[in-house]
Design a protein around this nucleic acid. Structure first.
Lengths: 339, 339
DNA sequence: ATGAAAGCGCTAACAG
DNA sequence: CTGTTAGCGCTTTCAT
């Protein structure tokens, strides 16, 4: 469009030195006499010089950028993850290429290919994945080239690292809490039926009921059509239609829980008077809802920082654990107060 | 770490052709005999070849990546913008480098520099900016090299393009609606005092009151300390402490409105019985709150797609308008029903 | 249809 | 401290 940007060559010519010297004043300033250094700097300034990272990366074999994939930024939980990851990435001098997959595997595959072509130094997949696609071929293939980190999903592979919140433990805490506060007919509203965290939570929900000698009623388990407020609303509607009595609900994530509470309120149920509700993720909103929503928190901050740290450490050749579990915590609020 | 990735040179050697031919089968397949093409393809497959986009970009002078800056992904409004932008970018074969600035100008400046070094094809700044920094030196400087698009902020410059929702109109609609439904003491909870959208809304709020012969009470205008739920809560608290009576509140964004409603509820006010509330942005959550929150919607989808379209069009040399205004719309829900 | 060679912007031996 | 040179992986004339 306009005139070409100044290159290292232009600077060199203008300064009457070689390109090597210019390169040195950028990368190893002390190997250049302060005089020429000053001169070169002033010329750079004047020519509005900016090093071309493409060329640098081409030789250094490192782009200092990490590819990050999430299902959808619209979910505050994911948004917070992106936020934390971005923060730590920046702090460690990485940029992030963001890919929103919408849980659409074909898009993800294409995206991974693009990011690999663009030579990202590593890739982070945020959030649980579909368990029916256990081998995730494109992930395995990618991990042959660069480190891959998964968040809240367990996958084993040569260059694959996982950091996850123990959702079995979290679900157990939630359900046990409902039981301990006098609820004996507890429904479970599941997220996407085949996602790893959903499977784990459902399993834990069932086990916890059993451990407390409460029989599992299949009518009280419903899969939400979508992983958001709308889905929670619809799921709760379905639950009500089935007609089985319940006095507690454990919801696989907070956004769905918002929909659930909306539906319950519309249907005339008092929370927690008639039914007690516990969500999952502990997004900020929980605190501001009326009634405020009890939830299980996953230490997103740690999760995100570890994810970045992992790719960084691997790139630096450090030894790191393949899989790390973090302990969740239950936050009790108004929605699950004993009646 | 592991063995070097296959390059075009390896493929060429293996196939007994020149690198030029390999390059051609990638970019202009029809200029290569179908026989060699097939052979080369199979070798690529076998060697798990992936073109190095750095090298490609170095010669093509285009990276097909756009830098996107936002204040914080945590705000659902911004998250949705990112979502839309990402979607359109992907569709147009761009990737996005995401920078979360937290309204921290020094970070933004550093980030812009990094993205420019990384040769992004264009930059999109999402959301209103600080009006006290009117010339935004780094933006002007950047726009000398690549197209810059601003969303919800007006800035004039050679290679700068803006697309914004008419927030003056939106604020006017909100306030007029409150007046029309019988509210005559209307408070305004402002966002960050110096951000462009806040200034515009406040101005419009005042004008609309005047136009309706309602005097402006400075006690009813409060600047939130933060641009989120917490800030809205605190602002509402401050408002109540001032002691001036009010029966309607216009809040500069929905997240703050959530905090406002929480505080009002805690303080024993009925919504909309005692006080009517209208927010701004129309995030999805509005519908699911109890009571549901009236809000002004900005057609985020259009805003985001236009932003991407603008950088794309400019890069392709098309003529585009420097500034485009979109009309907002008022969504009336329970929180502002007439009493 | 294919190859040779120059060049994109920068770095890194090696030599002085 | 500085210059020369080769090379990172790919594209693109210009020949053939």
């Amino acid at each position: 469009m306009s005139k070409k940007n100044a290159s290292i060559y232009d600077i060199a010519k203008e300064a009457g030195v070689s390109t090597a010297t210019v390169s040195r004043t950028i990368n190893t300033p002390d190997k250049v006499s302060s005089e020429t250094r000053r001169k070169i700097h002033s010329i750079m300034e004047r020519l509005n010089y900016s090093p071309n990272a493409l060329a640098q990366s081409l030789v250094s074999r490192s782009t200092r950028t990490i590819g990050v994939f999430i299902a959808t930024v619209n979910n505050p939980y994911y948004a917070e993850m992106v936020h934390v990851i971005e923060k730590h990435a920046f702090h460690n001098n990485y940029s992030i290429l963001l890919g929103n997959t919408g849980n659409w595997i074909e898009k993800e595959e294409k995206y991974v290919e693009i990011f690999v072509k663009k030579q990202v130094d590593g890739i982070i997949f945020v959030g649980g994945r579909n368990v029916t696609d256990p081998h995730s071929h494109h992930i395995m293939k990618t991990s042959e080239r660069i480190p891959v980190v998964l968040t809240n999903h367990a996958l084993v592979g040569k260059n694959i690292y996982c950091v996850l919140s123990d959702e079995a433990e979290g679900a157990c805490m939630a359900v046990q809490h409902l039981i301990d506060t006098g609820r004996d007919r507890i429904a479970y509203i599941n997220g996407f039926n085949f996602s790893y965290p959903s499977v784990v939570k459902k399993d834990s929900y069932i086990k916890t009921l059993s451990r407390n000698q409460i029989s599992v009623n299949e009518d009280l388990i419903v899969n939400a059509p979508k992983d958001n407020m709308e889905g929670g609303y619809a799921a709760c509607e379905a639950l009500l239609e089935k007609g089985s009595e319940f006095n507690g609900i454990f919801v696989a994530n907070d956004m769905m829980a918002v929909g659930v509470m909306k539906k319950l309120t519309e249907a005339g149920y008092a929370i927690p008077g008639d039914v007690s509700v516990v969500g999952y993720d502990d997004i900020q909103l929980c605190h501001y809802l009326t009634p405020s929503l009890s939830s299980v928190t996953q230490n997103i901050s740690k999760l995100g920082s570890m994810a970045v740290q992992l790719v960084n450490d691997v790139l630096e050749g450090k030894e790191v654990g393949k899989i790390t579990y973090l302990h969740p915590e239950l936050k009790i609020r108004e929605s699950s107060l004993p009646h």
